Simulated assay, not measured.
Amino acid sequence: MDCSYFDAGVCRSCTLMGVPYAAQLADKDAHARELLAPFGDAAWLPPVASAESGYRNKAKMVIGGTLEAPTVGILDENGRGVDLRECGICAPGVRAALPVLADFATRTRLAPYSVPERRGDLKYVLVTLSPDDELMVRFVVRDENVVPRIRAGLPGLLRALPNARVVTVNIQPEHKAVVEGEREIVLTADSSLVMTVGGMPLRLRPQSFFQTNTAVAEALYGQVAEWVDAVSPASVWDLYCGVGGFALAVAAPGRRVVGVETSREAVRSARATAAAAGLPHVAFRAGDATAFALSAKARPELVIVNPPRRGIGADLAGWLEDSGVPGVVYSSCNPKSLAHDLARMPSYRIRTGRVLDMFPQTGHMEVAVLLERAA
């Protein structure tokens, strides 16, 4: 894949840009296998490839520039806007929406927020594309006073962007490197975007986490479901469950599944999906995964963990080590933290594993492993 932004030196986020994709995938696979070799004689499956470009289903774009000529992309080292609206790793449906949103900001008189000057209205636009080509659009603004202007302009925006299913305003008043604030104002009748993955219509609400690459996410959910079905546990915990992708993928008659997630919005999404699918044996709890495990009176037969980049940490790894739980599926976006956690869990060995290339053109990857307790 070629990228004019990378070649011009204005964006270097995709550190592997220009490296042949086959080499990227082979290097990631070899790196994961080497890093995790001390933790079991694993049967590694072939890596899952992605489309090289157009794979990102969401974009978090900083708004810079001026009211008459806003930039949609990132900021340079001086806090000035760099326009990346034609970013090639974003899905075509996301790219098509960005000029419309920039024009909307100008027409609605939403001044781009200036980091050096600490003034302006609009900080980010966050765009998510569903497999059905529907959009969730979120405007992150500094002050609630601009909401009436956005609401007044909404009919025109929906005419220009008719596939925008959900439009919201997020209030982030603080001057710090945090994209979103706590308050979300939904402007449309729909408050969730349906992300159909593997035939399961997951409901994605604002501020809910979902994998960046829909096609590879589907492969990941399918792989984990295959491993879980082979083990056939009667009870499963899905810790760091997000909108419930793993929990819902492994649901089966008679199998009790509990998902745990700190984001209340994500839990609302997961519960709505489970209810619509008629899955009474799947439940979701809002709370900290480690606290849930440490306070639970009963233990499941299998635990799925899908933590953020920092990993599950010493407390949860220690609980798993001492728990007696026979099996663990660990899905990680950072194989280094995965290795650190496995070092804290010497009773578990990797039975099988797989690299899934969720992030082509970058050094990041998803690694999923099935762990079993050594006899």
Rank of each mutant, 00 (worst) to 15 (best):
Thr128Arg: 11
Ser332Asn: 06
Pro326Leu: 01
Val82Asn: 12
Ile312Cys: 10
Gln207Gly: 05
Val125Thr: 13
Pro346Met: 03
Ala8Glu: 14
Glu301Thr: 07
His31Met: 13
Ala234Met: 10
Val186Asp: 02
Glu301Lys: 09
Tyr113Leu: 04
Leu187Ile: 13
Ala26Ile: 00
Ser337Gln: 09
Ile171Tyr: 08
Val140Arg: 02
Val72Gln: 03
Ala296Tyr: 04
Val178Asp: 14
Cys241Arg: 05
Ser323Lys: 13
Ala30His: 01
Leu158Gly: 04
Pro307Gly: 10
Val325Arg: 10
Ile63Leu: 14
Ala368Asp: 00
Leu248Lys: 06
Ala252Met: 03
Leu187Cys: 03
Ala215Glu: 14
Glu144Thr: 14
Met365Gly: 00
Lys176Ser: 11
Ala164Val: 11
Asp133Thr: 07
Val228Thr: 01
Lys297Gln: 10
Leu248Phe: 12
Pro300Ile: 05
Gly278Asp: 01
Ala30Lys: 03
Tyr221Trp: 06
Glu301Gly: 15
Met358Gln: 14
Trp227Glu: 15
Thr273His: 08
Gly327Leu: 01
Leu279Cys: 05
Glu261Tyr: 06
Thr214Cys: 07
Gly156Cys: 03
Leu122Gln: 01
Phe284Lys: 08
Val236Gly: 06
Ala252Thr: 05
Gly153Cys: 08
Ile171Arg: 09
Gly199Lys: 07
Ala298Asp: 08
Leu45Ile: 02
Gly199Thr: 05
Ala283Gln: 15
Phe359Cys: 09
Val169Pro: 13
Ala368Leu: 00
Arg349Phe: 00
Asp27Met: 09
Arg255Trp: 02
Val127Met: 05
Val305Asn: 08
Leu36Trp: 06
Thr15Tyr: 03
Ala160Trp: 05
Asp341Pro: 03
Ala230Thr: 14
Val127Arg: 04
Val258Arg: 14
Ala26Phe: 04
Ala160Ser: 09
Gly65Tyr: 05
Ser331Asp: 02
Leu302Phe: 01
Asn306Trp: 00
Thr362Gln: 01
Gly40Asp: 14
Ala343Asn: 10
Asp2Met: 04
Asp29Tyr: 10
Gly73His: 12
Pro70Asp: 02
Ala32Glu: 13
Pro38Val: 10
Arg271Leu: 06
Pro308Asp: 13
Arg309Val: 12
Thr66Trp: 11
Cys333Ile: 10
Val328Lys: 09
Val100Ser: 00
Leu356Trp: 00
Gly278Trp: 09
Val258Cys: 15
Pro326Ile: 02
Ser235Cys: 12
Tyr113Phe: 14
Ser263Asp: 12
Ala219Arg: 15
Gly327Asn: 14
Ala249Gly: 02
Arg138Lys: 05
Gln207Cys: 07
Ala230Glu: 11
Thr290Asn: 06
Gly73Ala: 01
Asn213Trp: 04
Ile312Tyr: 04
Pro112Asp: 12
Leu101Cys: 15
Ile304Met: 15
Glu77Gln: 13
Cys90Met: 12
Leu302Arg: 01
Leu35Phe: 12
Asp7Thr: 11
Val305Pro: 03
Glu182Gln: 14
Pro307Ile: 08
Phe6Asp: 11
Phe39Cys: 07
Val257Trp: 11
Ser191Ile: 00
Met195Gly: 00
Val267Ser: 01
Lys58Tyr: 13
Gly18Asn: 12
Gly93Pro: 03
Ala298Pro: 00
Val115His: 11
